[in-house]
């Protein structure tokens, strides 16, 4: 791209805020009542992480893998990429994340949940944000309930809750599982910022919290 320094973030925005949020309305309508199942799966993951049973790491990772694959295909590839061609290059990353999670669940020592440190506790906070806070956001930002972003259906709460789970996890493959959801949240936050949306700080704060938690964990060692 020539004269790249003359471009602003807004120059890369291809759609209006109205189109963006209506996309979630249409997506929710298309998959309702699957939301109940994904939220129940998220709740189950949260409970399993809270109880820290090492033997359930397999199921937690497999559920997250399935949800990443589903969100990548149903939302990013099939819906978001229609109004934002750049997302067609991002959607496969969600597939890769699903693959990494699946591998992490099956490899011996790949993924286990035994974190009781500060990072683990911040992780639980992120899980709560992804599962509970996100669906409640629309009225705070004067949007219809129908545009709610739900864990396992929309990418942001899925990425945030997943990062929370990963902060509570240990295992050889865990470091490989952070980059994709982190980068997604940065991308999503910048997109919302370019739209002038007041919600932009939320995915960016979740990403920053994750990085801070990882740094704290490293310092604590």
């Amino acid at each position: 791209m020539s004269e790249w320094w003359t471009y602003r973030l807004e120059d890369f925005l291809l759609f209006s805020p109205r189109v963006y949020w209506r996309m979630f309305e249409l997506h929710n309508a298309a998959f309702w009542p699957l939301h109940l199942l994904t939220l129940a799966a998220g709740l189950a993951i949260a409970l399993l992480v809270l109880r820290r049973p090492r033997r359930h790491g397999l199921w937690i990772a497999l559920i997250l893998a399935a949800l990443f694959a589903f969100v990548g295909w149903s939302f990013l590839w099939s819906r978001y990429a229609v109004i934002n061609w750049a997302i067609a290059y991002v959607a496969p990353a969600f597939g890769l994340q699903a693959l990494l999670l699946a591998i992490g669940s099956t490899v011996r020592g790949g993924l286990a949940f035994d974190r009781r440190n500060i990072a683990g506790r911040l992780g639980l906070l992120l899980i709560a944000v992804g599962l509970v806070a996100y669906p409640l956001l629309p009225p705070l930002f004067r949007r219809p309930w129908a545009s709610a972003e739900i864990f396992g259906i929309a990418p942001d709460p899925t990425a945030i809750a997943t990062l929370g789970v990963l902060l509570a996890a240990s295992g050889g493959l865990v470091p490989l599982l952070f980059p994709i959801p982190l980068l997604w949240l940065v991308l999503s936050g910048l997109t919302l910022h370019a739209m002038g949306d007041p919600q932009a700080w939320l995915p960016l704060l979740a990403a920053a919290t994750t990085v801070a938690a990882l740094a704290l964990r490293r310092i604590a060692r």
């Binding site: 925005l13 759609f15 109205r18 189109v19 209506r22 996309m23 249409l26 819906r79 109004i83």
Partner: peptide, 12 residues
């Protein structure tokens, strides 16, 4: 530019 990029939204 932007205004007609409404995807598959039938209303828009």
């Amino acid at each position: 530019w932007i205004t007609f990029n409404v995807g598959d939204d039938p209303v828009l």
